[in-house]
Write a protein that binds this DNA or RNA. Structure first.
Lengths: 335, 335
DNA sequence: GCGAGCGTTGCAAACGTTTCCTATGTTACT
DNA sequence: AGTAACATAGGAAACGTTTGCAACGCTCGC
């Protein structure tokens, strides 16, 4: 079909090895020969076969990105950051959707390993058992965990500073004068949401006088936020501010609050976490903690490439990325 | 690092060719030998090297997905459909974000070709000139265009039935009794939005008595919808219903309408197009035309795989996917 | 004028598979 | 008993690169 390095070699009267060296800008090929080879290659419209290249070099210039679902805007943004960074290093990224299904996850990883990817970014290994994790760690390719804070010393991690975000939210609400505060979050064992909530509660407790938030656990999606808020509004009348564990829950909360005829931020202030696009478009625009999703993807790829380059000594790296407050219109002073 | 087919061969006392046949379930290997080989392969934890495999078979079992931006929820959904379908056929998909930049697009395609992908799904070739398109068409790998209706006979296409959607929207608004209708859309030359708008206007004109919508062109994002609606409400007082070319514009319209103190659907009915997640979460939940995004991705991969299989005679295939109305709460009877 | 050193190139092995062709042993038929 | 047909297995080439090593021809210094 397309021209090979042999065609170029024959056509320009030199050996394939010379062509290879010329094409890869390697030292030791005469300037004129190189020019000639390049022109012939151009004329034949030669394109190197990366598969063959990968076979001999052992590097595929491909990264695997294993997320629960690319339709989750959080991961779409991470993916974009990862793809941009990979591209800058001339790497491709192959997309995998695990739905957090352990079996699917294992199958994907197996498939990626067979393709000899240079590294894997993944969402979570939480649901893998000890033995599977150990096997994963020893599989030979570097792995970085996205948005997980070091559950395992064998993998690198990139994570937003959830605790800092929780503190920022707490301080912001306190500064606005709120004292009767609620926190909506996911199930107790959820890592990220847990960190946010703990730091939030701790910061409130450190206030003078200490504030003790009412904390409600539930599903961490739109519906969950909606349900929890309905319950909250029914059971705890005095609440003037809500911190939702993520923006989806916050959006659910908006709906529940509006449905009850209350106003935001007139009656209730609301702050979310994540800064997904939805939050800026909803009414009222949501004040929230911005998580550097794009940078998470980019940082993860950087780590991966470094690890792949060093090849031998793989010291996992852990990076914590800063978050910051996005002030929009869902928070106001306590009435 | 990991075991090769030679290791398995040596360890089980047979030739590599026999191992290959055994592993690929090919005819002509004794039942016991096969069992033995499989057990040895299992013991050595053998995993075939897909790179080497690809080199000799000429098939990489990889598809390229080239979209403008994966953060666009439309493409995220398409990507998910594509990935699921590819996975079912044991193919990987590599993700590329072109930002609709022609140069970037060309670079990506070049890179995908070097990796010898079996096919490419892409967003648009609109911005490529004739010669580039011709070269693309002759590059040897099948290409299917997403959400484009046959701009070029050389490529396959998968597209939602935009015209049908426009008609459905028109009929729905007419049935609700609206006669003073507006349409918000993108720039005049936009293919999909154009199809929607034309069919919409035509269906209105076919009513008895004919209805002539006011049509406003602008940017086709949230901000565009917002601006156009502001202008519309200022200039055309009598309008009771709006058809937005897509849901992003519709969301912008919601904001503009609410800002002006009008109610939806009390004062103005609003219908969108696409059915993105945002539409169900916004207040009021948006009535819209559902576009089968997931199926677009899936169908595109199916076509690609068929084309790749047939290898020789590549007759491009064009598929038009049905759309349907999602009735939520943003439309009501004309007052 | 001769060997050392250098710049440039060629040769061939290697990467891990698949697959065509051939060789062997076995069965079954005449 | 001889042979045709078949089932099974091995040998080796091929896929398109990279790369270590050897070889060649120069220049330069002694």
């Amino acid at each position: 079909m397309s021209a090979t390095i042999k065609d170029v070699a024959r056509e320009s009267g030199v050996n394939t090895s010379t062509v290879s060296r010329a094409l890869n800008n390697q030292y030791g090929v005469n300037c004129q020969t190189r020019a000639h080879i390049l022109s012939v290659a151009g004329r034949l419209n030669y394109r190197p076969n990366r598969v063959a290249q990968g076979l001999v070099t052992g590097r595929s210039h491909t990264l695997g990105l294993l997320v629960s679902d690319i339709r989750n805007p959080f991961f779409a943004e991470v993916a974009r950051g990862a793809e941009d960074a990979a591209r800058a290093a001339k790497c491709d990224v192959v997309l995998c959707n695990s739905d957090l299904d352990p079996e699917k996850q294992l199958r994907y990883i197996g498939s990626l390993l067979e393709k000899r990817v240079d590294g894997i970014l993944m969402n979570s290994v939480a649901m893998l058992d000890r033995e599977q994790q150990a096997r994963l760690a020893g599989c030979g390719v570097p792995i970085v965990l996205l948005n997980r804070s070091a559950p395992n010393r064998a993998f690198s991690t990139v994570c937003s500073d959830n605790a800092a975000g929780g503190r920022i939210a707490a301080q912001y609400l306190l500064d606005l004068g709120h004292r009767n505060i609620a926190h909506l979050t996911g199930p107790r064992q959820h890592g990220n949401l847990g960190d946010r909530g703990r730091a939030f509660a701790q910061a409130l407790k450190a206030a003078n006088p200490p504030v003790h938030p009412v904390v409600l656990h539930g599903r961490f999606d739109f519906g969950g936020g909606w349900e929890l808020t309905k319950r909250l509004l029914a059971d705890h009348r005095g609440v003037t501010a809500i911190f939702a564990g993520n923006d989806f829950m916050a959006c659910g909360a908006v709906r529940a609050i509006l449905d009850r005829g209350l106003r935001i931020p007139g009656d209730i202030s609301l702050i979310g976490f994540d800064d997904i696009q939805l939050s800026s478009v909803i009414h009222p625009p949501l004040t929230t903690i911005h998580q550097p999703k794009y940078e998470i993807g980019r940082a993860a790829v950087e780590i991966l490439l470094r690890l792949a380059r060093e090849d031998g000594d793989r010291a996992p790296e852990h990076r914590l990325l800063g978050v910051h407050l996005i002030e929009r219109e869902s928070c106001g002073p306590a009435s």
